[in-house]
């Protein structure tokens, strides 16, 4: 590769703290950079980024570029797009990794189009072709029933990476790296889509994405009351409650509880799916769980092809005793 300016990841640090997804991107970037003999840089765009640089280096960045501007505190489409377009033109990264979250979904297609390059969206695996050094990104399609291997003819190769698919590095404050403050001379940054308000959910318990144990319910739960049983179980197991889209669409639980390809991606130690059939779109959100347990009354349900342990039965008969025995084991 002649035009080779390494791998760049887009770092996100709302409220001055880098996100888990950012550390995953750094982990992926580091892994492919080591194979390809390249460097990893992190681009942090935001407001008030001091302190963020050191964290990005501790998680594996060789160089941190910052674009620190009061108008960039939260993502807005046009402003971020102008910044990224300019940075890519100046620093010509070979590969640009962006998280496949609300920012990445909005930004990446427009950015790739403007940079006259291709895009591999929502990828779950990144490989380097041994013979050519080219990046091959693996993207699920048809909900996850098919995998596509994508490469790019133009640079930067823009890839959005699905959360919880990449291993972060251990944080190591001993790592060293350079910090470069970029002055892009872009003037006032405004977006045509203006943010009038942000309404954030408030959490009382453990956040779904961070939980070590997730108890999820689907259409088989039959209504909002059934979810109370799941909540009680989750509380005893120190976990959080999730749901399938069917349960969300039925209005039984709020949409931020949805697990799956268009919901949250979780990778807990234990995932308990109750009254969930196990559609590919749902399993895409929990397949990285270490142990998946299915409780379903239909022994033919596809979930039994994707779970590690299961009980065939009506959850109303299974769950209370399961909860009881878990409690006994946990105190005992």
């Amino acid at each position: 590769m002649s035009d080779n300016s390494g791998i760049m990841i887009l770092a996100e640090a709302p409220n001055g703290k880098i996100t888990g997804l950012t550390t995953e991107l750094l982990g992926a970037g580091r892994r492919i950079a080591d194979i390809a003999g390249e460097k990893v840089s992190a681009l942090a765009v935001g407001a008030g980024l001091s302190g963020v640089e050191a964290e990005l280096i501790a998680f594996g960045a060789n160089t941190v570029y910052t674009v620190d501007d009061p108008s960039l505190g939260r993502y807005t489409g046009d402003a971020y797009l102008s910044v990224l377009e300019k940075v890519c033109q100046q620093l010509t990264p070979r590969i640009l990794l962006i998280g496949h979250n609300s920012t990445g979904r909005d930004l990446a297609p427009r950015l790739a189009f403007r940079l006259r390059t291709g895009l591999a969206p929502d990828c779950v695996d990144l490989q380097i072709d041994n013979s050519t050094g080219a990046l091959v990104a693996i993207k699920p399609a048809y909900g996850g029933n098919v995998m596509a291997m994508l490469a790019s003819k133009s640079q930067p190769e823009v890839v959005t990476v699905r959360p919880k698919t990449q291993e972060p590095l251990e944080r190591d404050a001993g790592r060293s790296g350079d910090v470069v403050k970029l002055d892009l001379g872009l003037g006032t940054l405004a977006s045509r889509a203006k943010v009038l308000d942000r309404i954030m959910h408030t959490y009382t318990g453990i956040k779904l994405e961070d939980a070590e144990v997730v108890v999820s319910g689907g259409r088989g739960i039959g209504g909002p009351e059934g979810f109370k049983l799941l909540e009680e179980l989750a509380r005893s197991l120190n976990g959080a409650v999730g749901a399938s889209r069917a349960a969300v669409d039925a209005g039984w639980v709020p949409s931020d509880m949805q697990v799956g390809i268009t919901g949250k991606i979780v990778s807990p130690r234990l995932y308990i799916a109750v009254g969930i059939s196990g559609s590919v779109q749902h399993m895409a959100g929990c397949s990285r769980a270490k142990t998946i347990v299915a409780i379903n009354k239909d022994s033919e349900a596809p979930i039994f092809e994707r779970a590690h342990l299961g009980v065939v039965g009506d959850y109303k008969n299974v769950l209370p005793q399961f909860h009881e025995t878990c409690r006994e084991l946990l105190v005992g």
Binding site: G118, V146, F304
Partner: peptide
Amino acid sequence: RSILRKQFIPVSQTQCEV
């Protein structure tokens, strides 16, 4: 701009113990 190199069907190796 993008090249589709190959497509494949993922295989699941999970064995469920009922």
